[in-house]
Amino acid sequence: MIVLHEVCKQFMQGDEEAHALKKVSLEIKKGECVVLKGSSGSGKSTLLSLIAGLMQPSSGTISVEGKEISKLPESFSAQLRREKIGFIFQKFHLIPYLSALENVIAPLIPENLPVRILEEKAKIAMEQCGIAHKAKMRVNRLSGGEQQRVAIARALVNNPSIILADEPTANLDETLSRELIASLEALKHSGVTLLIATHDPLFFELPFVDRIIEIKNGEMIL
């Protein structure tokens, strides 16, 4: 379902070239839950961004559901991201001046569908995350936990088959972290593929996690 073959990513840091990922090869099956662990700057977030098509690898190939995302034109990778991938960010990355409902609808706006259909889809996702009662509130007035739920609802609004979560509990207390984990477990049971980049130990002992992969200095440690 997700296949990475010898993926490298280099960035320029001043005049020097920094290697964020070095020849990473990985295969994640449909419905699998994989945790990527590693310290800050190890390359976990870069790996998620590459799988989501948010950036292009310097070399190597990445396939998502049989489509080589690293070779797709930008508009197609955006469409694939919209239809197949839900992204949960560490800092939620909500649009602060929009309501919770509008934030959840935001990924669907380019599809140019009738508002009624978009609102129905958004309400389903929000109910699933237990945040439907806050639909009309502006997200900057919501608590951290509520904002995270809005972010998850936004990731789920198009029924994605893959969820990519980047440090999803970094800004949550333990109670909210456990709530989030419960939501992720529910997604796993519904057949969604989960790829979670974290260094939160809570994730390392979860029964629904199929594999834990450690990344260090851009390399996978098997």
């Binding site: 955006a78 991201r81 991938i85 992204f87 960010f89 990355h93 649009i95 706006i109 380019p110 198009n158």
Partner: peptide
């Protein structure tokens, strides 16, 4: 810029 980044991350293309 951050907003553009968020929109791209949630599935908007450069065209959108």
């Amino acid at each position: 810029k951050k907003e553009i980044g968020i929109l791209k991350a949630i599935g908007w293309s450069s065209d959108d």
